[in-house]
Each structure stands twice: as C-alpha cells, then as structure tokens.
Amino acid sequence: MLEKAIQLTPFDRISPTELKKFDRVYIGSNFCSNLIPKISDIIRLKDLGVKNITVSTPFLTDNDFNKTIKLIKESLKIISKIEISANDIGLIDKIKEIKGLDILLARPISHDWLRMNPKSLKKFLKRFRIKYVETDEEYMVKRFKDAKINFSFHYPLEYLSMSRICPFERKINDALCEYRCLNKNIVELKETGRKDVIYLKNNAYFKKNIPVKTKNIKRTVLFYYGQKI
C-alpha cells in the first residue's frame, strides 16, 4: 500500500487533524543545516500522536555532523524506530549499523546515485542498508521500474539547486540564523521577460512537479509550504 507522508520544517505548525491525514511525518530539511530538528521537535511530534517519523538531514559540516549523531541517539531513546533521510555519505556510513534506524537516500544526492549503473547502485543500496531512494524525478523512477529499487516520491516541488549562502539571510548557513525564510513560505522567482518560474523555499530552488504512480513508488511525500491540505 502507498504510504502518504508530509515534509515539515521544525517551524511549520499544522493542526493535529491535518497531520492525521498522513501516515508519516518528515521533520527537518535535506537542504539547510539550520533546519536540522532538535530533540524537542521529535518529542512534540510524538506528543501529537505521530507514530512514524523521518528526520531529514542536509550535507553536514563537522559541527552539524556531531549534532546530527547526537539527535539520532537521543531520538532512539524516545522512539524505538526512526528513519533518517540522509545526503551525507559519511553520515550514512556511520549510522548504517545502528539498530532501530532505517536509512533513506535523500535528495539531492539521490540525483547522482540514480545516474550510476544500476548494478553498482543496487550494490551500494544494499551495502548502506538504504530502504528507499528519495526522488522527485518521474523519468528516473520510470527508468528503474523493473530494477526492484523502491522510491519515495517528493512533490509538488522538484529540486533544482541549493546554496549554503542563504538567499534570505544573505550569509552562510552556519551563522546565527534569524529564520527570515519563514516569513515567506515560498517565493516565486521570475526572470524579466521569461515565463518560467523558479520557486524558492528555504535555501533551495525548485520547479513544480506532480506525483506519479508506479509500482516501485512506495511512498509519496508532500512538501509543506503553507498550502491547504
């Protein structure tokens, strides 16, 4: 059965009734290190009755790496089973043996891995105990439809680009963040004289996509940006 999930940042507030429409909640960000959740965010979700939690993590500097390991260890004291959506190969390698942990290969690094030859890809997914490959690329999902690789599909925003120099703060992510991105959930960027739109959310740029239905998609993940659910 297709699992339905929602992706939240630690600052998103949606009602418990709306949360109940989903089988799973992703918390954090695969793009911004200032949006790595705190243990209190995990506790809050647990208190709201969320049973299945995925922690989204970005590329990590040494400082963020240690914070993330600490978060994982603390989370496992509170809930017996947790998923980590990870980009950083150092992190994936470090946590692959931890019990009670499922690992997802996150966007945008999954974009690269999906361009490997399928034989190598399968080998790496097995070696690192990766449960699902996270993607937003319809083309790649269809390409692998017979390869026995399972995906979770993110929508309605398909990743285009990201920066550690925050487009809202205009400074690097490791600096003290004033979370200016939260004042505007999503910004439509249009180049003068052109029709196509780029969407800016936190520190990453996207275009719109729609969920696809294929047998290897085991989960859809709605990227929450303040829209009506």
């Binding site: 990201m162 920066s163 439509e188 249009k190 180049e191 003068t192």
Partner: peptide, 24 residues
C-alpha cells in the same frame, strides 16, 4: 553561487548562468 554539481538550473556555460541573473 549554488552547489556545483548538484545544480540543475538551465546552465550551459558562461553565456547562460541563471544564477547570475536578476529575478523579480
């Protein structure tokens, strides 16, 4: 400007560079 290698803006060399353009 963005993560080189993981940027899929429509960039085809130094003449296009969407990251250097002005938006809105």
């Amino acid at each position: 400007r963005n993560f080189n290698g993981l940027c899929f803006l429509s960039c085809h060399g130094p003449k296009t560079t969407p990251c250097l353009k002005t938006y809105n």
